[in-house]
Nucleic acid binder design. Structure first.
Length: 313
DNA sequence: AATGTGCCCAACCGCAAATTT
DNA sequence: GAAATTTGCGGTTGGGCACAT
């Protein structure tokens, strides 16, 4: 394991001060413990110590490493920032899709959701949700947990994300989706546009490493396996089971979002929410681009329009 | 240029569950 | 088995930054 250069105190004594959470404040005073942003020196000290000794026993680690920090603070800094496999940068479209999907299933179980996004921390996902998703709910003046907002997410935002992912993977693009990712986006779009399709829950069918978009391990969900990132959506929205995960199969079976919306007997109209009109409006106004980092998704007119739709539900 | 506003995100807090003594 | 301690989780806060006024 790599040992980082450090200008910090890296003595390796075995002294251990054990602090209960109720005494943490008092200990802060006694030990003159630091809090707030970490310095580069502290980062190096912590990385070096863990490189040599491994993680765990955070309170004793903090003192042994010579850090004037609580064990809790050291753990958080390591897990959320210093860990080598922490993935930084913008949340991708596929990750956005998966966060929306998993949150709809598990709610604010950030840690559990993070397990299915390799390299992402629960803190990062939580921040994404609070800043991006809740912002849209606020714009629509509806609660983020309301059925209206969940429907908007499921039947508008998520399918649009799928469209964008597919567009990015089109032959004209330099980027190509893996078979698993294609399966995932197709599956989720089908389920999103037509909930009457059989949704039989997770199936015990996983992708092989060569057709999976990631190599991360999966986690259990009840008695079923949840695959990471885009694979999951395929397993969650199961269709006439077909183990042949090639592009042709999914293209043949794919009903486009637009096609579904224009069906007079479609599901959405039965719900009393005129998604067709919303979609037309959306296309005319270029407002709904999938909920990415752009902040001009919904202008005042769009929000007014959506609110009218929501009020009529 | 100064001030206000909102967003982003790292870090903290309190609590509960798990583990150790 | 009980108490002490550690770990992990979800909620919240506050500083820095960008942009608008």
């Amino acid at each position: 394991m790599e040992v980082y250069n450090s200008s910090g105190n890296d003595d390796n004594n075995n002294s251990s001060i054990q602090v209960s959470s109720s005494e943490e404040e008092e200990m802060m005073m006694m030990m003159e413990l630091r809090r707030g942003p970490w310095t580069v020196e502290e980062d190096y000290t912590l990385m070096n110590y863990i490189a040599k000794n491994g993680e765990g026993r955070w309170n004793s680690l903090a003192t042994s490493a010579g850090l004037k920090r609580t064990g809790k603070s050291c753990r958080l800094r390591w897990l959320n920032y210093l860990r080598p496999d922490v993935r930084r940068g913008n949340i991708t479209l596929e990750e956005q899709l998966l966060i929306l999907e998993l949150h709809s299933r598990w709610g604010n179980r950030w840690s559990k959701i993070a397990q299915h996004l390799p390299g992402r921390t629960d803190n990062e996902i939580k921040n994404y949700w609070r800043t991006r998703v809740q912002k849209h709910a606020k714009q629509l003046k509806c609660d983020v947990n309301s059925k209206q907002f969940k429907d908007t997410m499921r039947y508008l935002w998520m399918p649009r994300l799928v469209e964008r992912i597919q567009a990015a993977a089109s032959p004209s693009s330099s980027t190509t989706l893996t078979a698993a990712a294609a399966a995932a986006t197709t599956a989720i779009s089908q389920a999103a546009v037509n909930p009457h399709l059989p949704v039989i829950g997770p199936i015990n069918q996983s992708f092989t490493p060569e057709n999976s978009s990631t190599g991360a391990s999966s986690d259990s969900f009840g008695s079923t396996q949840i695959s990471p990132v885009s694979d999951l959506t395929h397993e969650y929205y199961s269709y006439p089971v077909n183990n042949n995960h090639n592009q042709d199969y999914y293209q043949v079976n794919q009903m486009s979002y637009q096609d579904s919306l224009t069906s007079p007997s479609g599901y959405f109209f039965n719900q009393g929410l005129d998604f067709q009109a919303m979609e037309v409006h959306a296309h005319n106004n270029q407002w709904f681009d999938g909920g990415d980092t752009n902040d001009n998704l919904w202008n005042a007119e769009d929000i007014w329009f959506l609110q009218q739709q929501l009020n009529n539900m």
